[in-house]
Design a protein around this nucleic acid. Sequence first.
RNA 1: GGGCAGGUGGCGGAGUGGUUAAUCGCACCAGACUGUAAAUCUGGCGUCCUUACGGACUGCGAAGGUUCGAAUCCUUCCCUGCCCA
Length: 378
Amino acid sequence: MNIFEVVKSDDKTKSRLGLLRTPHGEIRTPVFMPVGTHGTIKTLSVEDVIALGAEIILNNAYHMYLRPGPDILDKAGGLHDFISWKGPLLTDSGGYQIFSLANFRKITEEGARFRSHIDGGEVFLTPEKMVSFQASTAGADISMCLDECLEYPTTKNHAAASMELTARWARRSKDAFEESRRPSAADGTRQLLFGIAQGGMYTDIRGESAAALVDIGFDGYAVGGLSVGEPREVMLPALEASLEKLPASSPRYFMGLGTPEDIWEAVERGVDMFDCVLPTRNARNAQAFTFSGKLNITNERFRSDFGPLDENCRCAACRRYSRAFISHLFRSGEFLAGRLLSLHNIFFMIKLMAVIRDAVFRGAYADEKKRFFERYLG
RNA sequence: GGGCAGGUGGCGGAGUGGUUAAUCGCACCAGACUGUAAAUCUGGCGUCCUUACGGACUGCGAAGGUUCGAAUCCUUCCCUGCCCA
């Protein structure tokens, strides 16, 4: 059976509708995957996440490897059982932590040596260890290769050398995956492994990276190392250079994106999967996404605004609570504030993807994108 | 009535002759956040003019005084808290 099926492609853009099959269920793409780094979408319960309609969520292998650690996860019977999420689950390998925890690590050919950000103890991550942890111990539906996520800006030499290391790690990741993955399910679904394209902002290196991954052969391909602080005019060409070398028959995942604007741009170029901490992090920092634009809910003008966060929104927060009350909750330091905005923002992202899928379905992508931007930025 | 302590920007609270438009915290105003070491971080916050740079004015209970210079020293007054009658 095909693990990924392109259901429909847009005529005028590269956007497409897809169906991705995993041992824990199917995913309609383009999809947004909420991020649950430590095994939880911050402030939300699994019941919340189900009610929001999330089809797949993320966990982070680096963080779960450090705590609770492989032993506990093994005894729990894997991540699904441990965190009580029965749907599709994707784990990130720890490549992003090579970027975000740069002060704590040193990279060698063999792997990445970290000083644990928790207790300072030494941790050594290798592609083999992280992929085996994800596929075997954690039982992730989708595992990610260990990669080196580069900071921006970087020199071309550094980007090239780093990309080559990532490609060698991808080769090792795949071998480790074949050895450690669980048997295929009766329905023909099986665990999947995605490669991650790198290359900094250099389009030629981006292309080489994607081509190298395709040579190895993966179930899906991710574009990593983008949306790390570069301007959009730099990001989009780099994205295009990566996508150009990837097969249309495979799912494509833009790691770490993003803003609603960025997601429209990426889907238009053929991306199927997204994840981002923005909806939950910004929620905790008092920012709501709405179809009329983002708003900082602690702004003075919302103190006596008794309407919902977003008109016509049917999320749990909007059905019951006013902007004024949520603003009050933030000013009072109440945890419910960040929770309500998290519910709303995740709902917004999932709704946004539904709008996007509908636009592709109707062959009206360009028009719907224009309509969205006019309202969102207006 | 007597004694002691004290009155500083929205609030709390530093500062006891010049680098003080005034540390700092809170509150308030605004911004940022993109595979989460983040429910965090940045700015702003006397008044007026200026996009900004910058400039003008007012200012540490009130009034007067000493001094080149005062929130800081002196005098008088007003007010607050505690203690004694």
